[in-house]
């Protein structure tokens, strides 16, 4: 009984949230460009869970916040971000939380009769079944296809209580050959990619490396020389350390040009 009412309550809450976000989308679209410039220039404020971040009805509670009577509270440690109507907290830390549709980089750590166990650094186990691979696979020797320790670019197909199901049936999903793997905090992934890929494209352009960024914070870098890869790695590490400074893309570009001259 109790559970049911709880479920209903959650559903209701979700629905209202949906409505709210819709409303906000409409509201914010108009002023998006103007708004973004403004936010970039504001000094960033870090908030703690339970902290009151707004009072009254001026704002709607966004991600990682909750409303309690008149107040809106942070429910996660991170950076406060306000738009005209919405207030939310951008996480600064935390492990990777898988979402359906995420492209991630994983590492094969076990092989069963019908697929592969893949470590994607998520809180539950991930499995790639034979049926989610394309092309011919010798069923008697799955290791021929993906072996222990192999790194693959894969996609999260579904998340169930038993675990995560992966797929390889899409363009770009593949086994990684050559290059190196680095790992960063997954909360930094949007910064590494940048607006419409601007950041990662800058690094690719300046270093000549191929780079694949998994949503789980695992990144693959391959260049014509190890030195190029290390330079790209250095740039990525620099971004993870100072993710919220102004004009970061240009600064990274300058850094890469300077380093190349050395």
């Amino acid at each position: 009984m109790e559970k049911e009412t709880k479920k209903k309550k959650i559903k209701k809450e979700k629905e209202t949230k949906k409505e709210i976000t819709k409303e906000i989308k409409r509201e914010t679209k108009k002023k998006e460009t103007k708004e973004e410039v403004k936010i970039e220039k504001k000094k960033r404020q870090i908030v703690a869970p339970g902290e009151v971040i707004a009072t009254g009805t001026q704002f709607l509670p966004g991600e990682n916040t909750r409303r309690e009577d008149k107040d809106i509270l942070a429910t996660r440690f991170g950076l406060l971000e306000k738009s005209e109507k919405l207030i939310k907290v951008i996480p600064l830390s935390g492990v990777y939380i898988p979402r359906v549709g995420n492209t991630v980089i994983g590492q094969v750590f076990d092989i069963s009769f019908n697929g592969w166990m893949v470590n994607i650094l998520a809180p539950s186990s991930a499995f790639l079944t034979l049926a989610e691979c394309s092309g011919y696979i010798n069923k008697n020797d799955l290791a021929e296809h993906y072996n222990f320790g192999d790194n693959i670019v894969t996609k999260i197909k579904s998340i169930k209580s038993k675990g995560i199901d992966l797929t390889m049936k899409e363009r770009g999903l593949r086994k990684l050959e050559g290059g190196m793997i680095i790992s960063i905090n997954p909360t930094r992934v949007p910064r590494i990619i940048g607006r419409a890929g601007s950041m990662v494209n800058t690094i690719k352009g300046e270093t000549g490396c191929s780079i694949t960024v998994g949503q789980n914070g695992i990144i693959w870098i391959k260049g014509t020389s190890v030195e190029d890869e290390l330079l790209a790695k250095k740039a990525i590490e620099l971004i993870t350390k100072k993710p919220f400074i102004e004009g970061l893309t240009n600064k990274i570009k300058e850094f890469l040009i300077k380093e190349k001259k050395k």
Binding site: A48, P49, G50, N64, R66, L73, T75, R76, F77, G78, P91, L92, S93, G94, V95, T187
Partner: peptide, 8 residues
């Protein structure tokens, strides 16, 4: 909190 765990 520092580990980014959702907390009330």
């Amino acid at each position: 909190a520092h580990a980014g765990i959702p907390m009330k």
